[in-house]
Simulated scan of single mutants.
Amino acid sequence: MSELTHAVPLPGPGEDTTDASTRQRVLQLVAGEGPITAADLAARLDLTPAAIRRHLGVLETAAQIAVHDGVGHGPARRGRPAKRYVVTALGQSALSQRYAEIATDALRFLADTVGTEAVERFAAQRVAELEARLAPRVEGAAGGDVAGRVELLADALSDDGYAATARTVPGLHAVQLCQGHCPVQHVAHEFPQLCDAETRAFSRLLGVHVQRLATLAGGGHVCTTNIPVAQPPPAADVAPTTNPPVLAPEGTNA
Rank of each mutant, 00 (worst) to 15 (best):
V58K: 06
G161K: 07
T61S: 14
Q176E: 12
G57I: 02
R149Q: 06
L152G: 05
Y162T: 04
R84G: 14
Q125R: 15
Q125L: 15
S96W: 09
P234H: 06
T224N: 00
P192W: 00
P81F: 10
D105F: 11
D159Y: 07
T116I: 10
I36P: 14
G79F: 10
R23A: 04
L216N: 02
S2N: 15
R212H: 03
T215Y: 07
A42C: 13
E15A: 11
A239C: 04
R98I: 07
H173C: 05
G74D: 04
A254G: 10
A188V: 06
R25G: 07
L194V: 07
P245F: 11
H6Q: 12
E190C: 06
D40P: 01
F122C: 12
R80V: 15
E190S: 14
R133M: 13
A38T: 03
L56W: 03
V238T: 15
T48F: 13
Q211V: 09
A147E: 00
A132I: 00
D69E: 12
H186F: 14
R23C: 09
P170Q: 07
Q28P: 11
L56G: 08
V150T: 06
L56P: 13
A214S: 15
E131I: 06
R137W: 13
I102H: 11
Q125Y: 12
E60M: 08
A230Y: 07
V67R: 04
V71F: 15
L59N: 03
V229S: 00
R200H: 14
L95T: 00
D69A: 12
L216T: 06
L134A: 08
H73S: 11
E250R: 02
A128L: 06
V150L: 00
L213N: 09
D159P: 00
V8A: 08
V138L: 05
A38P: 09
V114R: 12
L172C: 01
E60L: 09
L110G: 07
I52W: 10
V246Y: 10
G161F: 03
R80M: 14
T88G: 11
V229I: 08
R149Y: 08
A135F: 00
R78T: 11
E33I: 02
E190Y: 12
T225L: 05
L45S: 09
V146Q: 02
C195P: 14
A106N: 12
R80T: 15
L90A: 14
D112Y: 05
D196G: 03
A141T: 04
D40S: 15
T224L: 07
S203I: 02
D196S: 09
A38F: 00
V184M: 14
T199Q: 07
L110K: 03
H189S: 08
G143R: 03
Y99F: 10
E3H: 09
A94H: 05
T48S: 15
Q64D: 01
A82T: 09
G32V: 11
G70A: 10
